[in-house]
Computed example of a mutant assay.
Amino acid sequence: MIAIIDYGAGNIKSLQSALSRLDIPSLLTTSKNEIEKADAIILPGVGAFAEAMKQLEKLGLVSLLKSEASKNKPFLGICLGMQMLYETSDEGGECPGLGLFKGKVRLIPDIVKVPHMGWNDLQIKQNVPLLNGIREGSHVYFVHAYFAAEGDTENLVADTAYGVRIPAVVQQGNVFGIQFHPEKSGSIGLQILKNFGELIS
């Protein structure tokens, strides 16, 4: 069972629907007990970093998510959920994140239209189980204004070009982040969600 953290940030019903199509059981929850019992965790999200972190704090989930991530449980952050894995973000003034990845989230430079909305290709840097069956240059759907501008290069699995190099997939052990929306990325997104489901032992 995958626990999808339901803290009010994003269209999580479409994510749950995508998992259902793949016959991957999931539940929307903020229950500490259910999160601890889950086999894996997905932290989704769209919107503002600081507000999302405030909501996680209010629900008492920040320390719990850090603890669960330390237990070798598959953990996936999607879009804003990926950005929240980092130490800090500039969005709305400097705000601390979960600190599961070293680095900082910054605004995409205005040399391109911001926010970044649309299909971009994946440039794969590392072959990892999350990207099994995904070809170099596969297109996925992005909607974001901020990105992980600073981070450890060894965690970078795939990126895309949008004015600058945008980290699109990152991994540190059992913790993964994807900047795009798999539930909006057609068969490629479904394959990535399927791969994540297969990481559950």
Rank of each mutant, 00 (worst) to 15 (best):
F196N: 02
I2F: 08
V112D: 05
S20R: 15
A69I: 01
V169G: 03
L19F: 13
F147W: 14
L56R: 07
L28P: 02
A3N: 15
G197S: 03
K102H: 11
V157A: 06
A3M: 13
V114M: 03
V128N: 10
E150C: 06
A38I: 05
Y141G: 04
K184S: 03
P129N: 01
A9K: 12
L19R: 08
W119I: 01
S138N: 06
S14M: 10
L193C: 00
E94A: 14
L131N: 11
A48T: 02
Y7M: 07
A38C: 04
I42K: 02
V157Q: 10
L98R: 09
T153Y: 13
H181A: 01
N155T: 15
G77Y: 12
Q191L: 08
N72T: 03
L122K: 08
H139K: 15
G133R: 10
V169R: 08
K66A: 06
G197Q: 05
S26Q: 04
P96C: 10
G45S: 05
I108F: 09
V112W: 09
N132H: 13
D110M: 05
T153P: 10
I124C: 07
G47M: 06
D159W: 15
R135T: 14
I12K: 10
C95R: 12
I35V: 01
I2H: 12
P129F: 05
T29S: 12
D152L: 13
P129G: 06
G197E: 00
K125L: 11
M82F: 09
I166R: 14
E68V: 15
H144K: 13
L65N: 04
M84K: 14
N155K: 11
E150Q: 13
G151M: 15
A69G: 03
Q83R: 12
V169T: 03
Q55K: 14
V128S: 03
I200E: 02
E94L: 13
L56D: 03
P74T: 05
T29Y: 06
Q126E: 13
I111A: 08
M84F: 11
L85F: 07
G10C: 04
W119C: 00
